[in-house]
Design a binder for these strands. Structure first.
Length: 478
RNA sequence: GCGAGUGUAGCUCAGCUGGUAGAGCACAACCUUGCCAAGGUUGGGGUCGCGCGUUCGAAUCGCGUCACUCGCUCCA
């Protein structure tokens, strides 16, 4: 599938009511999209599949925690410290660097010069580096040209760079709780839903009388100030996560990791109809691991723009629980009454982006049927926004009345749509493009003997069946 | 954030070196049509992303801005 396909999918999404650009009448807002009537149904169908697969398992329960939480949560999680990296650009070649990364690659005399400039001692350690970068940031105006005058070399060009002053990139959205800017408290919109699970995990465990291993599942919005937001709905600043955090005994972490890797990969093929050839695992290398992770796998999908992550399966160890215990001073240990043992469970995280799954499902379903000159969205029946289109063959002779009657009956079991506009072929094609799996057509014969033709979207085959066999046919052929 | 490109009707686009907008599809109404788009008639819809400037006059030129695409960069 080529990049051109993405353009076509974007256009189809807008035409058919799946996804609209947000705030379009005001010129748009970067990387912000709205889900239209068909889109919201598709998105909901995907999340319902996930919810069912997760929480119908007896030892996984649901949670809906708040988007806004106590700011200390993000101190404890490491998000405040780890995602506020001071950056600088080299104006000569437009390269951008994290200042700490850059300094690590400098000769000692350069670091010495910087230390002297900001009057600290050079201990030749990471602490010194951190101190330099935070000072450059905090007094950005004063140390405007510090990097350049200290002779900091651009590793790419090998020359001293023309460095801009240190700039902070805040990955978290900061806002104010309380009606007054002055008295209110600065808080963050959550950058991941996981922390809401961790801070509640003992309450959940107690109230549901759960024993390790158990899981907590949550679907909700998260917010990140991505530096680049691109590829349609693939990376947006506001997005919806579906996370399941699985709490295990520390000795069980690796087996649990393997279990969930398989479970999650299977989900895509068996529940969402994604072809295996378009899916793969990607293991994070040890030095690319997040600050909390011991091991991490992504599930990637072959998007029109290349392989992209749709889910992360991470071994987060006991890092988060221990950090929360440290900062809050509250016990975060699980008590195993049978073994009479107290410990911090390890957490295996499965974290997926609903919006990405949505895009993946659309990319997978999109087909150009050149033989019949039509576009078909081959969505699985369960995911299709509309299941059946009901059409009178002609807009006369009482056929519309009969069709509406049938529409009412079938609608009680399946989401249906009624269409009498245009030629019958045109109406079929319209629905093919929206992914509607079946079409029922009412003709004069229907008036005589209560039979209709039912047409299948993918094969375009038609069958004559009696009215009372519609549901049976649909459930057999979906 | 930097660089390049793009921005005209719901969608895809045309509009030459400036003279105040078009097509196809889509949509709506009516006719036609007895099962797989593109038949007929009629109609709705655009201050040409937005702002400022140059000009007698700008969709067309310049600057700024917003958005999208691509490349760097970043990515829990």
């Amino acid at each position: 599938m080529s990049k051109k396909h993405l353009d076509k999918i974007v256009s189809l999404c807008k035409r058919k009511g799946f996804v609209f650009p947000n705030s379009e009448i005001y010129g748009g807002l970067k990387a912000s999209y709205d889900y239209g009537p068909l889109g919201v149904d598709l998105k909901r169908a995907i999340s319902e599949k996930w919810w069912k697969v997760m929480t119908h398992n007896s030892n996984i329960v649901g949670l809906d925690s708040s988007i806004m939480v106590h700011p200390d949560v993000w101190e404890a999680s490491g998000h405040v410290a780890n995602f506020n990296d001071p950056m600088t650009d080299n104006k000569d070649n437009k390269k951008r660097y994290r200042i700490d990364d850059l300094l690590l690659q400098q000769k000692n005399k350069v670091i010495d010069a910087l230390c002297e400039m900001i009057s600290i001692e050079n201990n030749n350690d990471n602490n010194t580096i951190d101190k330099i970068s935070s000072t450059l940031l905090n007094d950005a105006n004063k140390y405007n040209d510090a990097l350049e005058s200290a002779g900091v070399v651009d590793p790419f060009s090998g020359n001293v760079g023309k460095w801009t002053q240190a700039t902070q990139f805040n990955l978290m959205f900061k806002t104010n709780a309380g009606p007054s800017e002055k008295t209110g408290k600065s808080i963050y919109l959550r950058p991941e839903t996981a922390q809401g699970i961790y801070i509640n995990y003992l309450l959940v465990q107690n109230s549901m009388r759960l024993k390790v291993p158990f899981g907590i599942a949550q679907i909700g919005k998260a917010f990140r100030n991505e530096i680049i937001a691109r590829n349609f709905i693939f990376r947006t600043r506001e997005f919806e996560q579906m996370e399941m955090q699985y709490f295990v005994h520390p000795s069980e972490d690796e087996s649990s990791m393997n279990f969930w890797k398989k479970q999650r990969m299977d989900f895509y093929s068996s529940e969402l109809g994604i072809s295996n050839k378009n899916l793969k695992f990607h293991q994070h290398s040890k030095d690319a691991l997040a600050h909390y992770a011991k091991d991490a796998f992504d599930i990637e999908y072959n998007f029109p723009f290349g392989w992209g992550e749709v889910e992360g399966i991470h071994n987060r160890t006991d890092f988060d629980l221990k950090e929360h215990e440290k900062l809050s001073g509250k016990n975060m240990m699980y008590f195993d009454a049978i073994k009479n043992e107290k410990y911090h469970p390890y957490i295996i995280e499965t974290s997926t982006g609903l919006n990405r799954l949505f895009l993946m499902v659309l990319c997978e379903a999109y087909h150009e049927d050149t033989e019949n000159n039509r576009i078909v969205l081959k969505l699985p029946f369960d995911l299709a926004p509309n299941k059946i289109v009901v059409c009178p063959l002609l807009k006369k002779d009482g056929l519309p009345d009969k069709a509406k009657e049938i529409f009412d009956i079938v609608s009680s079991d399946h989401k249906c749509i009624y269409d009498e506009q245009g030629s019958i072929g045109k109406r079929y094609y319209r629905q093919d493009e929206a992914g509607t799996p079946f079409g029922i057509t009412i003709d004069h014969e229907t008036l005589d003997n209560n039979t209709v033709t039912i047409r299948e979207r993918d094969s375009m085959e038609q069958h004559r069946i009696s009215l009372d066999k519609i549901l049976e046919f649909v459930s057999k052929n979906k």
